[in-house]
Computed example of a mutant assay.
Amino acid sequence: MKSCGVVVEYNPFHNGHLYHLEESKKHAEADCMIAIMSGNFLQRGEPAIIDKWYRTKAALHGGADLVLELPFLYAVQHSDYFSQGAIQTLAEVGVDSICFGSENGRITAFTEAFEHMNKHQEEYDVTVRRYLNEGYSYPEASRLGYESIAFPSGSIDLTQPNNILGYSYVKQLLTYAPDIEPLTVLRKNNHYHDEEIHGKIASATSIRKELLEEKGMTEKAEQSLPPSTVEVLHQYKNNHGIWHDWEAYFHLLQYKIMTMEESTLRCFHGVDEGLEYRLKRTIKEATTFHQFISSLKTKRY
């Protein structure tokens, strides 16, 4: 029996995810699809719109045969740690291939990029550090770092979010699990951060925005979701009275940060370069989560 793994968040499971599962199964010629999915909190730290049990139910209805939880330790990290946890877990259960969605759609572009980066890693690192020291944001410093090592023509665009994740998956596969075949499916009809629904395949970002702003299921949202997901979303809202987002928990985050000492905040992974002092200052002025993040962000942080 051939098995294919996919790394997912399904927040919520939509028609694009259904397309990815079906195409991955075809590409891999797989008998069994295994999804490794974030739990109740996702890579950006936000709470999932519905909990992991209901999202698992939607995934199984959509064609996954087995859903594993990506441990929280990995699920809320940047792409390197996120992909490392996901790939190593799928390797442990013995999948034959792993298929991800990308803006590029050609797996050779990812493997060539990995080989090229291996040859020029030191030059890339030096360039990124230089631009960070000059005050550039990390994404911009990374983009300039990629430019500095002149990726081959036709290579992947590593400013695109799914290409970044895909590159991380391929890097982890070639480093830790070279016997697993990497595959990719071209994303269709939308961009990862699109905030408006256009047609039957829409980004998860746009679907969540529609559901949360309208405080209920709408015709526009429903057309972009499989009927089983619509049912699961209704079940969750009826049973728990809420679809989750950052704002519902801001008052708890605000209380926690305001009552913690800087020395305690400093112990959290990622709180460095004096970020604990900025956290303490900005949390007092914010009245919403988005206002807090907006005032917290600078070129340095």
Rank of each mutant, 00 (worst) to 15 (best):
G145Q: 03
G145P: 05
E134L: 14
R143I: 05
S97N: 01
R129Q: 15
F114W: 14
F114Y: 14
N104D: 15
E140G: 12
Y131H: 09
F110N: 07
V128L: 05
S137Y: 01
K119R: 12
Y124F: 13
S168T: 12
V170T: 09
P152C: 01
H116F: 08
G145S: 05
G154W: 02
Q172T: 10
Y169K: 01
E122K: 15
E112G: 11
S137A: 10
G135T: 02
V93E: 00
E115Y: 11
V93H: 02
Y176K: 05
D157R: 08
A150V: 13
Y167A: 11
T127I: 13
Y124S: 07
G166H: 06
R130D: 15
F100H: 03
R106I: 14
E103C: 04
R130G: 14
Y169W: 03
G154N: 04
N133V: 11
I164Q: 07
P139G: 08
Y131L: 10
Y138D: 09
V126F: 14
H116C: 05
A109D: 09
E92A: 13
S102I: 03
N104H: 15
F100Q: 05
Y146E: 09
Y124G: 00
V126Y: 12
V126P: 12
V170L: 00
T111V: 09
C99T: 03
A150T: 13
N133C: 12
P178T: 01
I98N: 02
S148T: 10
V128D: 06
S97I: 00
N118A: 12
S97A: 09
G101Y: 01
F114P: 12
R130M: 15
Y146H: 12
P161C: 06
Y167S: 10
S153Q: 15
G135V: 05
K119W: 11
T111D: 04
V95R: 01
K171S: 13
D96A: 03
T108Y: 15
Y169C: 02
Y167G: 11
F151M: 13
I98C: 05
Y169H: 03
E112R: 13
F110Y: 08
L165N: 02
A109F: 09
S153L: 14
I107G: 02
I149E: 07
H120P: 10
P178V: 00
L165I: 05
G101W: 07
D157I: 10
F110D: 05
P139F: 04
T127P: 08
S155R: 02
H116K: 08
G154P: 06
S168W: 07
L173H: 03
Q160T: 06
E115H: 13
E140F: 13
K171Q: 13
E103L: 04
T175I: 10
G135I: 00
S155P: 00
V95A: 01
E103G: 08
N118R: 12
I164Y: 04
N133D: 14
V93K: 01
L165F: 03
S102D: 10
